[in-house]
């Protein structure tokens, strides 16, 4: 693409098509998905509703216009912040979704924090004791954490740490109980979401450090007579951190997928659970709004990751 623009400029250029692609996909969900939302809406009304009423409702929701016209109307409305009206709740979608964003961000951020806090030290320890028992144990635990489905881990945590040894709340987001209560309710879900990433981060940190330790400048540092701790923490770790940032960033986007499941398991009213509920209720305007918000969130996270990566790595920041 454009050489003069530099790396960051090119990344910014990619944001728009990504969001537009997500938007188009979302639009087609509503129009290709099986089940007429109007029929769903009228399900509780006596059967045999007059076709005329249905027609009126279709007009009210703009479903009678040609599809390309609907697309541009939808695009225009979305840009102005109007995500439509929830068919089931009869409220603006933006109003339904706004309060669900914060719990999901809190969950994703704490899961990432957890995965870094656990994953980086585990990976470093593993690398420094390469091919010794510590290394094998950490790496085996990591593969196990990679293999356990988040929803099952969540259920096990609920059963053992919420019920058997009741030290954490089993359900909900702790809203209304203040910030401490919210944090307290966050521990188990954050672990259920973050365990997988912790394992990924540990694996990445290990291989990244092993690679860096093989570099000439590490040999130089050692031959200067620097203490091993200084070599590891000042020279190796700093350089090993770059790929780890990418993993964490890519994972933050993937974590958003994990939150959908774990919110459902723990009954946390976040963006993911609201979306799943809306899918089962065929409340398509809410579904499309939620997916769109997820898409924007993911694009932003990816962009910030690229940015962090570029800042950490001068070779990229200054162009190839």
């Amino acid at each position: 693409m454009n050489k003069g623009m530099g790396y960051i400029g090119r990344r910014i250029l990619l944001i728009l098509p990504t969001v537009l692609g997500a938007f188009t996909l979302v639009f087609f969900i509503v129009h290709l998905a099986p089940g007429d939302p109007i029929d769903v809406l009228l399900m509780d009304v006596e059967s045999g509703t007059a076709e005329q009423i249905k027609q009126e409702l279709r007009e009210q929701f703009g479903l009678d216009k040609p599809i390309h016209e609907q697309y541009f109307i939808f695009l225009k409305n979305t840009i102005t912040g109007d995500l439509g009206t929830s068919i089931i709740r009869r409220q603006p979608v933006s109003k339904v979704l706004a309060p669900t964003i914060k719990p999901t961000i809190m969950l994703a951020v704490s899961a990432v924090a957890l995965s870094v806090i656990i994953g980086v030290p585990a990976g470093v320890a593993s690398a420094l004791r390469r091919n010794r028992p510590t290394d094998y144990i950490i790496m085996t635990v990591a593969v196990i954490w990679l293999s356990v489905p988040g929803f099952w881990l969540g259920i096990l945590l609920i059963y053992y740490l919420g019920f058997k040894v009741a030290i954490f709340p089993m359900f909900g987001g702790g809203a209304g109980g203040g910030f401490t209560s919210e944090l307290y309710h966050l521990v188990l879900p954050a672990f259920a979401v973050g365990a997988r990433s912790a394992a990924l981060v540990a694996r990445m940190a290990r291989s990244s450090i092993l690679e860096v330790l093989n570099q000439d400048y590490i040999r130089t540092a050692r031959s200067k007579g620097l203490r091993e701790r200084v070599v590891v923490y000042k020279h190796a770790l700093r350089n090993a951190v770059i790929p780890v940032i990418t993993v964490v960033g890519m994972d933050l986007a993937y974590l958003l997928g994990g939150t959908v499941i774990v919110e459902t398991v723990f009954g946390r009213v976040g963006l993911g659970k609201t979306m799943i509920d809306a899918i089962t209720q065929r409340d398509y305007p809410v579904v499309q709004g939620a997916i769109l918000l997820f898409a924007v969130g993911i694009v932003l996270v990816n962009f910030l990751t690229d940015l962090a990566y570029a800042i950490a790595n001068p070779r990229i920041r200054l162009g190839k």
Binding site: L14, T18, G21, A22, Y254, L256, G257, G258, F294, I298
Partner: peptide
């Protein structure tokens, strides 16, 4: 196009 698809979590 593949990059755009890959930006989204496989699950979503």
């Amino acid at each position: 196009f593949m990059d755009i698809m890959m930006a989204f979590p496989t699950l979503l």
